[in-house]
Design a protein around this nucleic acid. Sequence first.
DNA 1: GAAGATTGTCTAACGTTGTTAGACTACACG
DNA 2: CGTGTAGTCTAACAACGTTAGACAATCTTC
Lengths: 204, 204
Amino acid sequence: MEETASSSRRSKERAAMRRRIVETALQLLEQEGTTAVTTRRVATEMDYTAPIVYQHFENKDALVLELVSHGYQMLTAELQEVSAQTDPSLRLLSAATSYVRFAGQHPHLFDAMNVVAVESVQRSAIVEPVLDLLQDWLGVWASSQRVDLGDNRDACDVVWGTLYGIGALGRLDSVGNERAQRLARQALEAILSGWLSQGGQRPA
Amino acid sequence: MEETASSSRRSKERAAMRRRIVETALQLLEQEGTTAVTTRRVATEMDYTAPIVYQHFENKDALVLELVSHGYQMLTAELQEVSAQTDPSLRLLSAATSYVRFAGQHPHLFDAMNVVAVESVQRSAIVEPVLDLLQDWLGVWASSQRVDLGDNRDACDVVWGTLYGIGALGRLDSVGNERAQRLARQALEAILSGWLSQGGQRPA
DNA sequence: GAAGATTGTCTAACGTTGTTAGACTACACG
DNA sequence: CGTGTAGTCTAACAACGTTAGACAATCTTC
């Protein structure tokens, strides 16, 4: 396993090609939706042919999983920005609208990110950063309000599920993203205010 | 357009065949998941061939839409049962667990019921009964607690989105349906208690 | 009851999808 | 220069949604 000059160049080219595939697929997904992401379409868009995909991904699902991963990275980055907000309550509320806005700005990616069928061991790892962020912010909020949330994990999943559900609602024409942003904020306001008034821990 | 004996029999047979297709497709969906619902598979299961489907549905999407409609009817029926619960708060909490339990008992159907891509004018009509139920119960709860929810429609969608999100969360192995049922109850408890403590109307 | 129309069903095909095997080409290394 | 390796393409497969056209059975009408 020597490290020759050309082999290193080759592996860089391989990596570059892999990135190109992901970029092209992502662009297709965002601009034309799930149905546009086919192996042939992705390859053609780069002036290659379909089998090129299989030189870099085990199958199409693996490629899509990479898009999903990319999506969560984008989402994490966007959520990091509201980190500037130091007030624990406002920060959570900003995160809520931020999350739903993301769903509105990247509707098809958002869909792909939430296809449960693509469950895998890796999925948990992909979502983890966002959940960690949320769990952290919730913890800070709780201690700032001197509230015991019981299981922090539970609280985190409650908020996560709530925001996801309302974000998904916003995808419907009958609801719309802007209204969904408002609803998400209202929902989180209600939940936090509820936890506040329930005061302490939940009964068994 | 006379009403002869045989034409009436024929139309009954047509209707029966349509029902058989729906039943077969529903069974396949529930037992083997979305990928098992193909025109060929559905037809073969009934000892027919694929084109039979197109004698009764414009396309596969129309068939799936019928399954979704069927699913919402089942859900509505199941929610009607908790109607026995007269206490407004307990009734809503029961509905929450009921809804999430439904997601756990019919996971693939639940998925199909929530594919946003199948949006259509008819979709709103399909979901309407459930939303009406929820809106009604929320209204009763609000007046029983002497709380002004502001826009009743908003409150309804908040709860609807929340429950859906947590129900979908339960589909993940890392969460599980039983835990999701608990989480849904907790979420709704928090929201209601939050609305209670916020007391009156939301600011503009 | 026979002729013609209607209706149910199947066969066969088209285009598209994910995916793989095998051929070809170009470059790298001895 | 010859040999091997890595990258790419062509061609094919099975399965999918969908449609046209043929066939047969039934109904209508005289």
